[in-house]
């Protein structure tokens, strides 16, 4: 792949590199969820996607399923932890619109490591003896260890067509700098892709800056298809050093996820109704105030920063104590009508 400037808009990146029917590596974990890319995939009404990841939070994949973009998921854990359920996924599974293949976290990580290494499968210790093993034979099989003759569980290699990830920094060539959790599985999922990865980043740095500390690069430029400058690209999940988790917004979104007839209103307002991620953040400010965003700011200077000028920062979850739930008139009316209906029974 040529050494070229890969910067483009969210819209260009998704329309150019994600095709209907693709298998997509869905980046992040409970933090660094690629939310801006999730919204753009929904906006462009991509269809029949298959996703692979280990665990994903804040309902990003849940709304992508709710919007009808996904036909199949391979996962260890999905939900919006702040409403304690994967509501849209639950409904899509019940209605037969979604195939779901369950595996453990390390099963998924091992599957992506095998893909990353270009080998067909990987032995793992977990999953054996469970209902995941029983129901997910697409990913899990027991074979004989050729050296000992004992039974060994193996997981099929996962290789996505394309990956979507969020990172703290990237340069225009596509070197991706992620730190604080080493991306959990982004290194394997993104590098294991067949075509490459789309990255949204809080900041764009010069390649010369990247080269002062190449240890931090989890995806080298030749695996990167597109670089999108996208502040708050993981919101409402956290991006270490930039913002903490937005619990109240996750709960607000989760209450929309809960009802099939209410979720479209959320998508209309926050996804289709916003032309890009900057518009989404502007909408957030107009609805929940600058104070809402300010609450997410980490305290900087928590650790001395020898490399790349990195300040990991520190966001204390205790900041949420006493902060009232986010709501709006539509949500209030819906929940009140529902409560009245229940009370009337």
């Amino acid at each position: 792949m040529a050494v070229i400037d890969k910067r483009m808009t969210l819209k260009e990146a998704v329309s150019k590199f994600i095709k209907d029917g693709d298998t997509v590596y869905y980046g992040g974990f409970q933090i660094m969820v690629p939310m801006a890319l999730t919204h753009e995939i929904i906006r462009q009404k991509k269809k029949n996607l298959t996703t692979i990841e280990s665990s994903t939070d804040v309902g990003g994949l849940d709304i992508m399923v709710g919007a009808g973009c996904v036909k199949e998921i391979h996962t260890a854990w999905i939900m919006n932890w702040y409403v304690k359920a994967p509501y849209a996924i639950r409904r899509a599974f019940n209605e037969g619109k979604l195939k779901r293949y369950d595996i453990s976290n390390f099963g998924a990580t091992s599957a992506m490591m095998a893909g990353f290494m270009g080998i067909p499968f990987m032995p793992i210790l977990g999953n054996i003896g469970t209902d995941m093993q029983k129901h997910n034979t697409a990913d899990l099989r027991i074979i004989e260890d050729p050296f000992t003759g004992k039974k060994v569980n193996v997981v099929r290699a996962w290789r996505a067509d394309v990956g979507i990830i969020h990172a703290q920094k990237a340069d225009r060539l596509g070197n991706v700098i992620s730190y604080g959790t080493r991306g959990v599985t982004d290194e394997f999922g993104a590098n294991g892709t067949k075509r490459g990865v789309i990255v949204t980043a809080e900041e764009i740095v010069e390649p010369e800056v990247t080269r002062t500390d190449p240890d931090r690069v989890i995806v080298p430029y030749f695996k990167t298809l597109a670089v999108v400058h996208c502040p708050y690209g993981a919101h409402p999940s956290a991006c270490r050093g930039y913002y903490g988790l937005d619990i109240r917004f996750s709960q607000y979104q989760g209450r929309y996820e809960r009802y099939a007839d209410l979720l479209p209103a959320f998508l209309d307002e926050w996804v289709y109704g916003c032309k890009d991620h900057a518009a989404y953040i502007e909408k957030y400010k107009s609805k929940f105030g600058q104070a809402g965003l300010d609450r997410l700011k980490p305290k900087l200077g928590y650790t001395p920063s020898p490399k790349l000028g990195i300040d990991y920062g520190y966001h204390d979850p205790a900041c949420w104590k006493g902060v009232p739930m986010y709501t709006d008139d539509r949500l209030k009316a819906y929940e009140e009508a529902l409560a009245a209906k229940k009370g009337g029974k």
Binding site: S55, W81, A85, I89, N94
Partner: peptide, 17 residues
């Protein structure tokens, strides 16, 4: 196996491992 009535929770996460 009765997909229409199964109520999904989050899944294993790392608990199985």
């Amino acid at each position: 196996t009765k997909k229409e009535s199964f109520t999904y929770f989050a899944g294993s996460g790392g608990a199985n491992d």
